[in-house]
Computed example of a mutant assay.
Amino acid sequence: MGRVTERRRVVRIRDGAVSTRPDTLVAEEPLEIRLNGRPLAITMRTPGDDFALAAGFLVSEGVLGGAADVANIVYCAGATEDGSNTYNVVDVKLAPGVPVPDITLERNVYTTSSCGLCGKASLDAVRTTARWRLDERDGDDIRLTPETLSALPDRLRAAQRVFERTGGLHAAALFTPEGELLDVREDVGRHNAVDKLVGRALREGLLPLSDAVLLVSGRASFELAQKAVMAGIPFLAAVSAPSSLAVDLAAETGLSLVGFLRGGSMNIYAGEQRIALRTAAGDGLAAADRPSA
């Protein structure tokens, strides 16, 4: 099985002094995901948690909704000409009775890049396949304080073990509304890190993640918002900017979306009802002053 990191020789220049040394890099290898033996998608990922990655990917595509939907997940032997196992091909076998989606070229383009359909079609696809509604929760809905949100990025960074050695990994983490770290995964791709989180939750019977906060390093794309919605996660926060389509999806589905979460600053793009907002006077933010979704 592939390693998470690899060593490479590097020529280093520091203040005019030249030296050579080994450097630790994050590993990147392709993973082919098969469904009942048929190729479905290929993603570039950091080896590790491959079964969870495949399961989480299928949750985001509406194929899986619980651990009982999976018969087994295996690495495919004989993936190369000499019959050796590269551990870069995973086959997910569905349990009897679970519908097998129509695997087409158009579907592969959409699932791997999210650019195969226009914005409206993308929103419609998520709305029609989502198993859990985020906009139908009442008084039991989660609420966070800005102070709790502000502390999450530092907690995520402290939990990134491989990032500290390489500086080249994205991360995604699940937190409780009180800021307790539940799980964290690292990968060269933010979407893979989220899939690993969701896949682990599925295999442990924890879906939907209706009381969890998802934090991602970098920006919040439509694809990441989609994965949150499909896993039943009501709150997505990112340390950088969201895309316009991610904001549209959040507003459409009831997902709370926060961007530019840095220090004590943040922008709320949708779902501000899940944040305990206060004015300078200490009162709740007036409805007219609340950010538009």
Rank of each mutant, 00 (worst) to 15 (best):
D138F: 07
D141N: 05
D141C: 03
D141K: 00
I142L: 13
I142S: 02
R143E: 10
R143I: 05
L144V: 07
T145N: 04
P146I: 06
T148W: 07
T148G: 12
L149Y: 01
A151D: 06
A151M: 07
P153C: 04
D154S: 11
R155K: 14
R155I: 01
L156I: 00
R157H: 09
A158H: 09
A158S: 15
A158L: 09
V162K: 14
F163W: 10
R165C: 10
T166L: 07
T166V: 15
T166Y: 08
G168Y: 08
G168V: 01
L169M: 12
A171V: 04
A171P: 01
A172S: 09
A173F: 03
L174Q: 00
T176F: 02
P177F: 05
E178S: 13
E178Q: 15
E180F: 06
E180N: 07
L181V: 03
L181S: 06
L182D: 08
D183M: 13
V184L: 14
R185F: 11
E186H: 13
E186L: 12
E186T: 10
E186P: 07
R190P: 11
H191N: 15
N192W: 08
N192M: 11
A193G: 13
V194A: 07
V198E: 03
A201H: 01
R203Y: 05
G205A: 05
G205N: 01
L206A: 12
L207V: 06
L207G: 05
P208R: 03
P208G: 11
P208N: 08
L209W: 01
S210H: 11
D211H: 10
D211S: 14
D211N: 13
A212E: 02
L214Y: 02
L214H: 00
L215Q: 04
R219A: 15
A220D: 10
S221A: 15
F222I: 09
F222V: 09
F222T: 12
F222Q: 06
F222A: 09
Q226G: 14
K227P: 00
V229D: 05
M230G: 06
M230V: 02
G232Y: 00
G232N: 01
V239T: 15
V239N: 10
V239K: 12
V239S: 10
S240R: 11
S240V: 07
P242K: 14
P242R: 13
S243G: 15
S244P: 02
S244Y: 12
S244R: 14
L245T: 11
A246T: 08
A246R: 07
V247Q: 14
V247R: 15
